[in-house]
């Protein structure tokens, strides 16, 4: 599902608690051109709800994939 799986993450937010993963991701997405694909990793359970909710509010699309102790998020900047 995550075709960005093999690239290095643009954000490794593992160990960060809400709302920090979303804030860091928003900063990166703001500087990116529309259509850019970003890969983020996070292990805060709240991020699974909050990253998709933020993406919806900002017009990005996101798919997520659980990888054991953390979750990988693939964001297409809108």
């Amino acid at each position: 599902m995550c075709d960005a799986t093999d690239k290095a993450p643009d954000l490794d937010a593992r160990g960060l608690k809400c709302p920090l993963p979303v804030i860091r991701l928003a900063r990166i997405a703001r500087a990116a051109d529309p259509g850019t694909v970003l890969l983020a990793l996070a292990d805060d359970p709240a991020a699974e709800a909050d990253i998709p909710a933020w993406a919806r509010m900002r017009g990005h699309t996101v798919t997520l994939e659980r990888r054991g102790a953390h979750t990988a998020y693939r964001i297409v900047v809108g």
Partner: peptide
């Protein structure tokens, strides 16, 4: 979370 709302 179930509603897809921001939790923070």
């Amino acid at each position: 979370a179930a509603m897809g709302a921001l939790t923070h």
